[in-house]
Amino acid sequence: MTLFEKLGGSAAVDATVDKFYRRVLADDRISEFFDGVDMVQQAAKQKAFLTMAFGGPNNYTAQDMKNGHAHLVARGLNDDHFNAVVEDLGATLKEMGVSDELIGEVAAVAETTRESVLGRI
């Protein structure tokens, strides 16, 4: 069974996205990066991110990740912010009753995007 299947597939993504995005928006460490964005489009991006972090199907390349976050890196996006997102993701999954082991696996998938998101490739 893949990680994506263990977590419950796309239904689990749907159930998680609102809770996760709400936590991110309310997080003072990172909320300023979301000021003025279209919330509906942003929620769709969060869903794509969760699908990826859950080990689900996606075709994002490292270059896509770099391009998609370049404007945020220019505004000061750094490792602390990346850590905050991963922490919020872990807290959301914990709230939903996901085991620590699976949360660790999700965090590890998210971790693989760190260098490209922060533009260090």
Partner: peptide, 9 residues
């Protein structure tokens, strides 16, 4: 296009 997984619309 974006995620090519039917999520990002």
């Amino acid at each position: 296009n974006g995620c090519q997984a039917g999520a990002c619309q």
